[in-house]
């Protein structure tokens, strides 16, 4: 797993690369917890991700939920690679299934992207 951050104004861009799989989940959690303090807005770039499993999908959902609670924004970079699309589709993340009934009103996967 490869994680890089770039800060520009109030936005931190997090570039993720390599496999986002369960063996990296703990590190990813720590990373996301830390980065939340760095800016009001975090832009996640998943273009370099070569594999993502359920543990990391739900971890990013969790991060989104946490950010939302603290009135911060987690936004996904526009365009989704096939790796991500396939993983979400296999996990049963349907187009209609936005987490609007949860505190995170803006679903990371289906909501705003930039």
């Amino acid at each position: 797993m490869d994680l890089k951050t770039e800060k520009a104004g109030n936005t931190v861009t997090v570039k993720m690369g390599g496999p986002l799989t369960i063996e990296h989940a703990a590190n990813l959690k720590t990373f996301m917890s830390n980065v939340s303090g760095e800016a009001e807005e975090i832009l996640v770039d998943l273009d370099g991700v070569t594999d993502i499993d359920l543990s990391c999908i739900q971890l990013l959902c969790s991060a989104n939920l946490s950010f939302d609670k603290t009135r911060k924004r987690l936004i996904r970079k526009s365009g989704q690679t096939k790796v991500i699309t396939r993983a979400l589709s296999e996990a049963g993340y349907t187009r209609e299934m936005v987490c609007q009934d949860k505190p995170c009103k803006n679903c990371l996967w289906k909501g705003e992207e930039r």
């Binding site: 959690k29 543990s55 971890l59 969790s62 991060a63 996990a91 349907t94």
Partner: peptide
């Protein structure tokens, strides 16, 4: 297939595994 994600906790309570 429809995933239920409502049980996912915030980051601080999440067990990543």
């Amino acid at each position: 297939v429809t995933a239920h994600t409502e049980d996912i906790p915030p980051l601080k309570d999440l067990d990543p595994e």
